[in-house]
Design a binder for these strands. Structure first.
Length: 137
DNA sequence: GATCTGACGGCCC
DNA sequence: GGGGCCGCCAGAT
């Protein structure tokens, strides 16, 4: 997995922002891209999450190899705790996967947090959306 | 390597 | 409201 420095920065940002979405709230791929200063890269946010397992592993490996920095400085680089299920489309819909199992799991995870998900995999963004203008990450 | 495919979203009919 | 187009870029073919 060869990533440019630029895209590594982007991935770091995506995971850092996702890790800050509050329990019981959701945000959109596009809003994460907006917070990272790249509002046109919503699609890459989806890609970051789709491949979060491999990408995070790659980022961790590189940090371990290239710097003496303690990995605990980057708490968001852990796909086991990354709340990826709190990210949905700007239309308020859980995005379809190749295999519908993923969206099913996502709806379960959201309901566990008290976020209602309709049969059409829709979430009420007015009530459960988290869309800050800027955050620290 | 060239080309296609998406966990997307904004814009323009 | 809905459909087509475009930007973006990591993976897959």
């Amino acid at each position: 997995m060869r990533l440019t420095d630029e895209s590594k920065q982007f991935h770091h940002g995506v995971y850092a922002v996702v890790s800050q979405i509050p329990f019981g709230k959701v945000t959109s791929y596009g809003h994460i891209a907006y917070l990272l200063g790249k509002p046109q890269n919503s699609r890459q946010v989806g890609s970051s999450l789709k491949h979060c397992n491999a990408i995070i592993e790659s980022l961790r490996t590189e940090l371990q190899e290239t710097q003496a920095d303690d990995l605990s400085t980057f708490p968001y680089l852990d796909y086991k705790t990354l709340p990826w299920w709190r990210v949905i489309s700007s239309a308020g819909k859980i995005s379809p996967r190749e295999n519908s199992n993923g969206e099913y799991i996502q709806s379960i995870k959201l309901r566990e947090e008290g976020v209602p998900v309709s049969d059409g995999h829709m979430v009420d963004l007015d009530e459960f959306g988290w869309f800050p203008d800027d955050i620290d990450y």
